[in-house]
Each structure stands twice: as structure tokens, then as C-alpha cells.
Amino acid sequence: MTPSDRFDFLLRMGDSTLVLAQRLSEWVGKGPVIEEDIALTNVGLDLIGQARMWLSYAGEVEARGRDEDALAFRRDAHEFRNALLVEQPNGDYAETMARQFLFDHWHLLALKAMERSRDERVAAIAAKSSKEVAYHVERSTDWVIRLGDGTDVSHRRMQDAVDGLWMFAGELFLPDAVDAAAREAGVGPDLAALAAPWRSAVGAALAEATLTMPGDDWAQRGGRQGRHTEHLGHLLTEMQFLQRAYPDAKW
């Protein structure tokens, strides 16, 4: 695995966790009930912590002197390698939870596979993160079930959310050359092999939630290669503002 591939692979993990954390931070103070506000922020905090580990390591591998903040705040959208799913706007609580649910199940499977990574740093980050993400999975799955099998209104909203986001989940399982290199080196997971267990876990939860799994598996792709939806640019504009406006400042 070339250092450049390894760098790219680490960015994919770091950027997905970072962008999702950024989305969750938009909810701070505006959740449906205080308990939930606090709980969702805990998920965001876990993800920021993970993003910092992935990006710091990515910076070391790149060896051009960029630290976590240089990578987070000084790259443009086309240099971001996050999945399209996580950059989608928060929408209502059903959309936020559906996005979390689809991502969490993939995230846990990927991390579990990476706990056996031949790259010790990757294995260590994965081991720490997977404990956190196991809880994320439990939470988001429970919310999908509660909202799916709640009231008529919540059922409709959750079904709409799953339907709307489904096309962004597919790319998580479609490996490209970087993923292939990571897998062959024993560093990253076999993405294609995660599809079946993901489908089975997600399917079971949707069934319990009395929701219908979308039939159309056409996947929107490109996020992990740097081709994003329009939403990422706005997210970065906001997130990177201070670092861009005051490039010489230390905060």
C-alpha cells in the first residue's frame, strides 16, 4: 500500500466522522427534549474524537506537516473523502436518525474488521472507536424502531427519511482502487463483504420498525473519491470560516 493510498484511506475514515460530527453539532441546543440533546451531543463528541485520531494519523502518513486542524480546516470540498451519506442535511429528527442508523451499522462493521488491521495504529483507533460506535448503533437503531413503530406521523416521516437517504448508503460498500489496496495490505476492511451483514442488521431493524426496506439499490457515489453533493461546500464554508479568514491566527 503506497503512503498516498494509506493517506487517502485514513482521510475517508477521518472525514466521514468529522463531517457527521459537524452535522450533529448543528443540533446542539435544539433537540426534541433535553435528554436527547445531551445524548446526541455525546455521539457527536465521540465522532469528533475519532476524527481527530484519524486525521492526526493521516497527517503523519502524509508527512507534509499538516496536523488534524490543517486537514480539517484548510482543504476544499473536492479534497474531502467522506461518504455522501454523512454530509446530507439534518432535516427533521427522522432524517438525522435514519442517516445515523445507516451509517452506524456500516461504521461498526468496518471498525470491527479494522480491529484486526495489520496497521497497528489503525487497529488501535478502530478498537477504541468500536466501543463508542456499538453504543451509537444501539441508540440509532432504537430510534428508528421507535419512530417507525410510533405514531402514523412518525412512521411516515421515518419511512420518507429511509427512502430519501437509501441511495447514499450504497457507496459505503463499493470499493475502488484505494479500498482494494487497503484490503490487500490487510489495513482496511473488505467493503463488499460488509454489505450482507449490514443488509441483514438494517433489514431486521426496519422490519421491527414496521418500515419497508427500499427496493431500488441504485447508489449515488463519489464522496469517497472527492465528488460531493452540493451540501458539503456549505458545511465547510461554515466550519472553516475562522481558519480561512485569519490564516495566521492560532486559536
Binding site: 427534549v33 436527547e36 445524548a39 444501539e138 441508540r139
Partner: peptide, 15 residues
């Protein structure tokens, strides 16, 4: 506050 015991335990963990 929580709708049931299961969520009460989780909320307690987070709070």
C-alpha cells in the same frame, strides 16, 4: 424523563 425503562437507562448513561 424517558418514555420507558430502556430509554431511561440510556438517558441516565448520557446525562
Amino acid at each position: 424523563h424517558a418514555p420507558d425503562a430502556e430509554m431511561a437507562v440510556r438517558n441516565a448513561r448520557d446525562v
